[in-house]
Amino acid sequence: MKQPSAFVDRMLYILLVPAMFVSLYLIFIWSPIEKQMGASQKIFYFHVSTAWVAFLAFFVVGYYCVLTLKKPTESRFIKAGISAEIGVVFTTITLLTGMIWGKSAWNTWWTWEPRLVTVLILLFIYIAYLFVRKMEGTWEKIAKLSAVFGIIGCINVPIVFMAIRWWNTKLHPVVFGEGKNQSGGGVEPDMLVTLLFCIGTITLLYLFMMRKGIEIEKMRLTVRKAKSKVIEKLAS
């Protein structure tokens, strides 16, 4: 069965694969090597773009949570869940790349830097959210409960960031804006182009994964419904 969404998926795929290679080229060959950190700075591109998607995915979860509370539909519920699952992947990557960056920049695997800690707490909130979704019960009930938790979690994220920033603002290079004199602060134009392209590519990847995830989940749902229908038929 051919569906119009298949076309969008195909287009996304066609766009995504070359974009991946181009960003790899941009990162490793085209963009200049940073003076202080050397080649290890390259991980910065992955770090920033995955971090962006981590927050984007969370924003999407929050958005669908609000919609779910307004009017629960299976599709909204599924979208929130898939976005959270992808978010877990990207927050984990962000943390790992952040740690590698920290090791090469400040010679420590972990720093209590506001953005990094916010991402860590974001990961915990994501996982908690997925735990809520794993509860037993009908999907309407779970949808409601998880949406409520998602909204509370969303409100929390900016406050976490503010609190940690207040607590400790010493270590991180502020890339855009204020801290030009800090190491790594400020970006050269070439680097900026690469970074923006990377962010675009990873966002595209997120979109693609979202669509695929939703599709798979909906298939699962169709199968489950068919199954329960058969059971009902056999029972009566």
């Binding site: 915990f124 909130i125 996982i127 908690a128 735990f131 938790f149 509370i152 976490v160 503010m162 609190a163």
Partner: peptide, 17 residues
């Protein structure tokens, strides 16, 4: 078991303060 997992991440800003 679920309660601490849900609660502690959300408490973090409050506890820092």
């Amino acid at each position: 078991m679920l309660l601490p997992v849900l609660l502690l991440p959300l408490l973090s800003p409050l506890m820092i303060g």
